[in-house]
Write a protein that binds this DNA or RNA. Structure first.
Length: 488
RNA sequence: GGCCUUGUAGCUCAAUCGGCAGAGCCGCCGGCUUUUAACCGGCAGGUUGCAGGUUCGAAUCCUGCCGGGGCCA
């Protein structure tokens, strides 16, 4: 029967209770992480067979391996930092604890007090003095050597993935390190962390379709934000000169190795700054994160060897388009002809929209080494200031690595009259994917006066992918969106 | 949405041309005081994702559906 495993484990619950154990444990103070204990053992230089009988250490974790001999048992205990071996000798623990050992299963959560040392075979080991069961596992864990491989199961039951695949745990610990690093870097540069609405009556700041929802009491439709941009700029108007936000955006679009419907963005605005400050922040964040991880600026990602050492190359949009598509931005007929060649079927679309499709198709995949693409066509950048000596170009860059867009930055448009014009304009062919949604209150805020500013968004998930060599965004999001298994 | 691919025991995987569904881990019973995926002996474990079809015979071929992965839009 399929729940044979469950039954075999469940029948041990009353046996544990009879022995006086609570199968689900109690507060357990003073646990030292396994990696700390391992380091301590190394630092103290135990000889094979030696242990420190004069002091007691405390560990806790999940049993991932067990080797039980007649009167001696070795257990491997895993916590989020490392694995460590527990040695239990029948002669050196209570009769009760020895009975406990024989009732333990792989997957149980166990606490141990004991003496740190090494075995004769030189394995760092805690020789148990006493054992405490902290959480009985009623379900069998995945195969002890291969872990959980089934991708579907890994995402649906991330908790199993985390405890059975240590590299997954390492990735998510690295993610936390990266987010910490971004936060400390921004604060160090004088930015104030803020939180702006996720539920917005008008969405804007990016070109994407939104999720919609409804507030019952106010009887109003709301959108989950696709970007915090228009709110963060209001804060510039309010006098917060440097603000940033690390939070989720929601875009009601396709799912791929680079897209999840909810994803994390670091977005920041710096009054009196411009694009060059934002480039410095992108490079600075990448460098700070790498320092916090392992210090290695040359990193593998998929089949690529990436070098994050600043400064990253700067290339203009047009020179890349000429190089890869063989056509100049200002050559409208050439753009349309080339687009047709590449199978882009958009005869009615505005030439800037067509050019951008052509750029995405011919250029982006080839941007492997970290770099900045500058001077975007102004027509597709309604929130960006124009280049003073060439109003057909916008003071915008995108950061790329491994063919992925990593960040997007502007010298911000702060002229309310022009802003009203660009948001009111509509390019043919933009369809749903437009950021031209008129937000009157945003315009009003600009009319009060917004300082000139640089603004930047960095895709945190993608940064984590790049720095942890994770090929799919689902590998760096703990609970990626999955279709439910139960069919209605 | 289109194309390709995939689903076999709790887990990891086999099953030659369409010919008896198998192994390891895990579990249960027994043995074992220095193991390292411990080991040794024995036992148990299946609606081959679901529903149809072709066939003497289907995990295998065909159709549809469900779930996953990849590429494209």
């Amino acid at each position: 029967m399929t729940d044979q495993y469950f039954q075999d484990r469940a029948r041990k619950l009353p046996l544990l209770i009879d022995l006086g154990y609570d199968p689900y444990g109690q507060r357990f103070d003073g646990v030292q992480p396994n990696s700390d204990l391992r380091h301590e053992a190394e630092r103290r230089g135990f000889e094979p067979g030696q242990s420190d009988e004069s002091s007691v250490v405390r560990a806790a974790g999940r049993i991932v391996l067990q080797r039980i001999m007649g009167k001696l048992a070795f257990l491997t205990l895993r916590d989020s930092s490392a694995d460590i071996q527990i040695g239990v000798s029948k002669a050196r623990v209570s009769e009760r604890d020895w009975k406990l050992v024989k009732l333990l299963d792989l997957g149980d959560i166990l606490g141990v007090d004991g003496h740190l040392g090494r075995t004769k075979t030189n394995e760092i080991t805690i020789w148990a003095q006493s054992l405490t069961i902290l959480g009985k596992s009623l379900r069998p864990p995945p195969e002890k050597w291969h872990g959980l491989k089934d991708v579907d199961a890994r995402y649906r039951q991330r908790y199993v993935d985390l405890f059975s695949n240590p590299e997954v745990m390492r990735t998510f610990r690295a993610r936390s390190t990266i987010v910490d690093s971004i936060r400390s870097y921004m604060r160090q540069r004088g930015f104030l962390e803020v939180e702006t609405p996720m539920l917005q009556p008008i969405y804007g700041g990016a070109a994407a379709r939104p999720f919609t929802t409804h507030h019952n009491t106010l009887d109003m439709d709301l959108f989950l934000r696709i970007s915090p941009e228009l709110y963060l700029k209001r804060l510039l108007v309010g006098g917060m000169e440097r603000v940033f936000e690390i939070n989720r955006n929601f875009r009601n679009e396709g799912i791929s190795t680079q897209h999840n419907p909810e994803f994390t963005m670091m977005e920041c605005y710096q009054a009196y700054g411009d694009l060059t400050d934002m480039m410095s922040i992108v490079e600075g964040i990448a460098t700070r994160c790498i320092e916090a991880l392992d210090g290695e600026p040359k990193r593998k990602f998929r089949e690529y060897d990436l070098d994050f050492t600043p400064p990253w190359p700067r290339r203009t949009y047009n020179e890349l388009l000429v190089e890869h598509a063989g056509v100049d931005l200002d050559d409208s007929d050439g753009i349309r002809a080339k687009a047709a060649e590449f199978g882009i079927d958009a005869p009615a679309a505005d030439v800037a929209v067509v050019a951008n499709k052509l750029f995405e198709k011919t250029v982006e995949d080839g941007l492997i080494q970290p770099c900045f693409v500058t001077e975007y066509p102004a027509a597709i950048c309604p929130l960006t200031r124009r280049k003073p000596d060439d109003p057909s170009r916008a003071l915008r860059f995108e950061a790329f690595a491994a063919g992925m867009e990593l960040g997007n930055a502007y010298t911000e448009l702060n002229d309310p009259v022009i802003q009203r014009q660009t948001l009111g304009a509509q390019l043919d062919g933009e369809g749903d994917a437009t950021m031209r949604v008129m937000d009157e209150d945003f315009i009003t805020s600009l009319e009060y006066g917004m300082p000139p500013a640089g603004g930047l968004g960095i895709g945190v998930d993608r940064l984590v992918m790049l720095l942890t060599n994770s090929p799919s965004i689902r590998d760096v999001i703990l609970f990626p969106l999955q279709r439910p298994l139960d069919k209605g």
